[in-house]
């Protein structure tokens, strides 16, 4: 059975790119969210194996979304997607419970390595 992933990013471009990379690795994209609030809602509904989470999103940022998800689902496996220069935010996200991170611009191999670690 394909492993499931929920992709959270406010940019369609980034969602498409991530979906492409993850589908190529055999994932089934079961949901996409454009805001933190939506991510939390969808996680509850879908309980995916993996979540990719952008940091800066409207209506609850990625870090708060991680907090909200991990609070109810401590086993959630969340991979942060950060832009360059968001060092402090990435650290905050990890403290909040994110399992690993990748830095944009994405290199597919790096994304998949991080995914392996998150699921490993």
């Amino acid at each position: 059975m394909a492993r499931t992933v929920l992709i959270c990013d406010d940019a369609l471009f980034m969602r498409t790119m991530l979906a492409d990379i993850l589908k190529g690795a055999g994932f089934e994209v079961v949901g996409e969210a454009q805001t933190g609030a939506e991510a939390v809602k969808q996680y509850k509904l879908l309980q995916p194996d993996l979540v990719t989470m952008d940091i800066v999103m409207p209506d609850m940022g990625g870090i708060d979304a991680v907090r909200a998800i991990v609070k109810e689902h401590p086993q959630a496996r969340i991979l942060m997607c950060s832009a360059m220069g968001q060092q402090a935010l990435v650290i905050e996200a990890i403290q909040a419970g994110a399992r690993d991170f990748v830095v944009k611009p994405f290199q597919p191999s790096r994304v998949l390595e991080a995914v392996q670690r998150v699921l490993g």
Partner: peptide
């Protein structure tokens, strides 16, 4: 990238 975060991990 972000070595400090990697060290935390």
């Amino acid at each position: 990238p972000i070595k400090s975060a990697r060290a935390m991990l």
